[in-house]
Design a protein around this nucleic acid. Structure first.
Length: 494
RNA sequence: GGCGGCGUAGCCAAGUGGUAAGGCAGGGGUUUGCAAAACCCUUAUGCGGCGGUUCGAAUCCGCCCGCCGCCUCCA
């Protein structure tokens, strides 16, 4: 099986091959840190984190770069409002982003280049474009000349002339062509600016990604990610600049765009005020649940957020975790008898681990179909449950081996998706009043023992009172044939 | 106006020519002192509508209806 990905540039799924054997170089459009991290930031981060894990699982080395757009008018506006420098403000919000990503289990990428640290690279690239005749200066500002780049529009399917016709923006009459875009512009009054061969000013939006991706990756690198909202003009312009500058193509082999997160009433965005921060979600749900939710639909499609939907996902995830834990308990505690498994099954359970592996990979190979991958995981879990819950279940050495292999494969797949329960993760609910953790294991054992005795004496009211009382403290008791299972709120799904 | 996407069960969602994954909710059962957890069975002769191509269509083509995104330095 080979990996196939949907490439926005061609508009279809293509077989994925790398620029350099065994290594994937990727550039992911990152954040503009000027406000709290919201769900719209979490989707791409979790998606790309999953892609990276999967590629590594498949044996690739991955080099990933994600820019930090700290030179930005919104950053500047907010900084001015608060009376701090742009850098200071950006650092504060980027710290928030880092913290959130850590809690979501998103591994850091290799490089996080900041625009303000790369002005030399940006200026050098603009100078190169001027020298090659692809850019021109007007009054201290520099514009890219789209007419020198015939392929302009190939990513978004826009034609530069039709763009003008339907444009909602006022066209700057000084430009040679209305679609020409700024590479360097003068800073508005009072805004920080950088020295340049033209006038003191600030880089255009798109040039940073061209300059920084080439700084850290090789021209013609493998994947470039970002939201569908960036296809035009951001990525279209990035291609134009980069390929014109290099005099070669392609700048990027595969363009991969994720769909927007929407609220139930349309796109989630700061300007509409209908966004939800990741912080508030993490206060209510575990990170694994959020990841599961974000991966429940195909990345390329829009995803509608609502509290109810995440709550549904939480129920699904809890079932997954409970099942996996049940399997673990069977593998850990039951005696192993040398009894042969009845072989009436059409497919022996010894094949289940391999089936999960192959279904999971087939799904992920098919343009990172995490929805299908999740389906494969749930099928595996149900299979395991039906075996260990069968009335005549006997854990023979043979069955033990099969289930053990299956457990390991479930863990591997769940870790790729980042939904494997993490130790020490935040509980998904904040306990109130007396904390469950205030009750020591010794005390808890005593209570459970007393309850056992009560049950043996058929004093069920007393037993239920103990169980109900502990439940209120966040500790659940479950009676199983092997004895009473203790579930503290913070060490499982809740 | 231009470009692109979407419409599959009560809800979410996979499925790009071969006879509808998975999850949530609901119903019935097994197990349990009762719960919990788990398992089993159950819910789409049909995939927005109407035509067409084909031995065969949710999948391809045409038209229509509905929703959404981008064309604004928004992930």
């Amino acid at each position: 099986m080979s990996l196939r990905v949907f490439n926005t540039l061609s508009g279809r799924r293509e077989e994925f091959t790398t620029r350099d054997p065994g290594t994937v170089q990727m550039y992911i459009c990152g954040v503009t840190p000027y406000s709290d991290t919201h769900l719209g930031h979490a989707r791409p981060s979790v998606f790309w984190d999953t892609v990276i894990r999967y590629l590594q699982y498949r044996g690739y080395r991955v080099r990933a770069v994600q820019n930090v757009t700290d030179v930005n008018e919104k950053v500047a506006a907010r900084a001015a409002l608060e009376g701090v420098s742009e850098r200071e403000l950006a650092e504060r919000y980027h710290d928030d982003y880092d913290e959130i990503m850590d809690e979501l289990g998103v591994a850091p990428v290799d490089e996080y280049p900041w625009v303000s640290d790369h002005m030399d690279d940006i200026i050098a690239m603009i100078e190169g474009l001027i020298e090659k005749g692809h850019a021109y200066e007007i009054d201290g500002e520099v514009y890219f000349d789209v007419q020198t780049y015939p392929e302009y529009g190939k990513l978004s399917g826009q034609s530069k002339d039709e763009l003008v016709a339907g444009s909602r923006v006022q066209v700057d009459e000084r430009k040679k062509h209305p679609a020409d875009f700024a590479l360097w512009k003068k800073a508005p009054e009072g805004m920080e600016s950088w020295r340049s061969p033209w006038a003191p000013g600030r880089p255009g939006w798109h040039i940073e990604c061209s300059a920084m991706s080439l700084r850290y990756l090789d021209f013609g690198f493998d994947m470039h990610g970002g939201g569908t909202d960036l296809i035009f003009p951001h990525h279209e312009n990035e291609i134009a600049q980069s390929e014109a500058h290099q005099g070669d193509e392609p700048f990027v082999r595969y363009w991969i765009h994720h769909g927007m997160i929407t609220g139930e009433d349309g796109k989630m965005s700061k300007s509409l005020g209908n966004f939800v921060t990741v912080r508030e979600l993490l206060d209510e749900f575990r990170a694994e649940v959020l990841r599961h939710f974000l991966l429940s639909g195909h990345y390329g499609k829009p995803l509608t957020y609502s509290r109810e939907r995440v709550t549904e996902t939480k129920r699904a995830w809890k079932r997954f975790v409970n099942s996996v834990r049940g399997l673990r308990e069977v593998l850990d505690s039951s005696p192993r008898e040398e009894v042969l498994l009845a072989e009436e099954e059409a497919e022996p359970i010894s094949a289940w681990a391999e089936r999960l592996r192959s279904d999971f990979c087939a799904a992920m190979d098919d343009d990172f179909n995490t929805s299908r991958a999740l389906g494969a995981l749930f099928e595996a879990v149900r299979g395991a449950n039906s075996v260990i819950n069968a009335p005549d279940f006997v854990l023979s050495a043979e069955v033990y081996r099969a289930l053990s292999d299956l457990y390991d494969q479930i863990e591997i797949c769940a870790r790729v998706l980042g939904i494997w329960p993490r130790e020490g993760a935040r509980p998904d609910q904040q306990p109130a009043g007396v904390q469950a953790q205030d009750i020591t294991d010794d005390l808890l054992e005593l209570l459970v023992h007393v309850r056992e005795t009560a049950r043996e004496s058929k004093l069920f009211d007393l037993a239920d009172e103990i169980r109900d009382g502990l439940k209120e403290l966040g500790i659940k008791l479950e009676d199983t044939p092997e004895g009473t299972r203790i579930r503290r709120r913070d060490d499982h799904a809740g």
